[in-house]
């Protein structure tokens, strides 16, 4: 049964959740927030979307399989971990790019942000894998 009001609300809800997740992701490290929490919130949006539209639609929206998203996230984590080696520092050392953009102001760009992004992608991938596969087994659609 289609419910047009619910469908509209859920697609709006997804956008709100994603924006809030990105806000939390960028806020992390110096303030409460970070990749893990952001991923939980982003995947809540996707889960609601899947409940209304079915899992197929979410999988189509993600373009890649959730396993591949996990792989990409872990790859980002690996890059941020190994990058300091090229500057002859111990692995996982934080590297920062001095940045003072004309409009955005002072941004803290560096390997911790990359690491957090990796965590964000990985955890989203994991949670979506868990929930989507459970929904598929239960034939939710």
């Amino acid at each position: 049964m289609r419910n047009i009001i619910l469908e509209k609300i859920v697609s709006l809800f997804l956008k709100v959740m994603l924006i809030f997740a990105i806000y939390l992701l960028l806020r992390g490290h110096n303030n409460p927030g970070g990749g893990f929490i952001a991923a939980i919130i982003a995947s809540t949006g996707f889960v609601f979307y899947a409940i209304i539209y079915g899992t197929k639609k979410v999988e189509k929206m993600l373009h890649l399989s959730t396993h591949q998203w996990m792989g990409i996230g872990l790859l980002l984590v690996l890059i941020s971990t190994l990058l300091p080696l090229f500057f002859s520092k111990e692995i996982q050392t934080g590297l920062w790019i001095p940045s003072d953009f004309p409009v955005l102001g002072l941004l803290s760009l560096g390997t911790p942000l990359l690491f957090d992004t990796g965590v964000f992608v990985t955890v989203s991938g994991v949670i979506l894998t868990i929930i989507l596969s459970i929904m598929e087994v239960l034939e939710w659609n």
Partner: peptide, 21 residues
């Protein structure tokens, strides 16, 4: 510097590859 973390990083790299391949 990479030597000691290498036994941990190496399986990690494999896990990434296994997810993508």
């Amino acid at each position: 510097m990479i030597l000691l973390p290498a036994p941990i990083v190496l399986p990690f790299v494999f896990i990434i590859l296994a997810l993508l391949v």
